[in-house]
Design a protein around this nucleic acid. Structure first.
Lengths: 110, 110
DNA sequence: TTTTTATATTGCAATATTACAATATAGTTT
DNA sequence: AAACTATATTGTAATATTGCAATATAAAAA
């Protein structure tokens, strides 16, 4: 016990859970918001923006990358991180779909 | 160490992270999708729908409730669980906002 | 080539999560 | 009241996550 039983759920459910899980930490939300805010794509200063050590930030970036939420390009000495729009769109349409289905139901019993 | 440093981030960032974290498990995604699907609101059979034991499901329901994603009403012997639309709307508008801001930027460098 | 700069990896301690058996609670039915 | 039903709580083992110091890697500048 202790490990998530991913094999018991559908691929879609696991896919969404992977994205939401990756975003389920304020540091990673802060990283996404920072990447969204800045104009330039050279992101060497994410570390300076966050109240966490360099290794910790690096680890969070790795998790976001593994989940497919950001992309990273080596740019000489530093690395350019960008949000992967497709992943954000997946999130958006997933919740939009739930939202519209709930509105149709209108069985607001609770 | 091991505990998330929530105090270093903004309330908004923590609020979104709380919601995404709660959805960051396939069982809880499955619960939300089941609540969305069913017509009746008596949800005693969530346990039967999921490939997990009753205590485990109960625990997942508690987490969704704590995060504000679902509401629960005692209904005689059983309990009626419903999705809290407001929470879903928060998620949707959060990602819609990121999506539209990314489209305006169009610095698709990676 | 040496030094500096930027990022990643490793190793580890602290804490959190996941899952479930056993048990508790509380309403329903008999 | 006693038995039954539905859900929650407790306790515990297995595993995962978080955070960082120390170290590694690799490109850039000196």
């Amino acid at each position: 016990m202790g490990a998530t039983k991913t094999d018991h759920f559908t691929d879609k459910q696991n896919a969404i859970a992977t994205l939401t899980k990756a975003l389920g930490h304020p540091a990673r939300i802060a990283i996404i918001e920072y990447l969204m805010k800045i104009e330039k794509c050279i992101c060497g200063d994410i570390v300076n923006e966050l109240p966490l050590s360099q290794p910790t930030v690096s680890q969070h970036l790795k998790e976001l990358k593994n989940a497919g939420l950001i992309k990273g390009n080596i740019e000489g000495n530093s690395i350019c991180y960008c949000i992967d729009e497709k992943a954000i769109e997946k999130m958006q349409s997933y919740f939009a779909n739930i939202s519209s289905k709930l509105e149709k139901k209108k069985t607001d019993c609770c």
